[in-house]
Design a protein around this nucleic acid. Structure first.
Lengths: 111, 111
DNA sequence: TTGACATGTGACCTTTTGGTCACCTATCTT
DNA sequence: AAGATAGGTGACCAAAAGGTCACATGTCAA
């Protein structure tokens, strides 16, 4: 797992997550289309899309003077497989119990 | 979903992911224990643990003068549920097909 | 072939993040 | 009580990330 760092860093920005959301609603959008609906100039959006593409979360295809952007959920699935394999159900249950216990002791300090 | 941002930002740093890994191997470690094994001063580790705790990825419990750190996989599960619900299997399959198609056209441009 | 359109690049600035350190408090042990 | 141990705070600095802009290239359509 060599570039999980790129994927995590790409997902760390809210604008980029919003772009992924928009691509999920309608796949294959151009830069100009994605630009509208984000409070940012074209250049900012372009940078974000580049980060997403380099992380493998977005795949692109040129079509004439347009560049179509497609969502690629595979890296997200890979992350999932990594963590959920490790932090198993049993462990999750145990920690949920601990969390409940902590909240009984100090209810105001936890969400 | 109000503080998904904190969770994603917390996961964006490789040191913090390493700390989660260490906690997975052995849960309930103290700051001093976690400090050894990371190329960083105690203060850096403390900051990272604080970020993880504020994101809800780590839960702590004071025991005398020690502070025990426990892994909380729940936020990761929540992220998983969020994305995998949206980017479904069908979609993943379709995009993997697209990716394969793109790699047939321009093999050198994709990993 | 000219003008409009879609995207790309590099320089630049501001904000955020990562990391260290001096100093401080709390707790244990004897 | 005193030294050792575990953790905490605030200031500080360097590096990275986010965002904008002037300018440039490639493509379409009349």
């Amino acid at each position: 797992m060599i570039d999980d760092d790129r994927v995590f860093k790409a997902l760390a920005d809210p604008t980029r997550r919003a772009l992924l959301d928009r691509l999920f609603v309608r796949d294959g959008q151009t830069l100009t289309e994605l630009e509208s609906g984000v409070e940012m100039t074209r250049f900012g959006v372009m940078k974000h899309l580049r980060v997403l593409e380099e992380a493998g979360l977005v795949v692109t295809r040129r079509q004439g003077r347009e560049k179509l952007h497609f969502l690629n959920p595979v890296p997200i699935r890979q992350i999932h497989d990594r963590w959920i394999d490790k932090y198993t159900e049993v462990r999750a249950a145990a920690l949920l119990d601990l969390k409940a216990e902590l909240e009984r002791d100090r209810p105001e300090e936890n969400q």
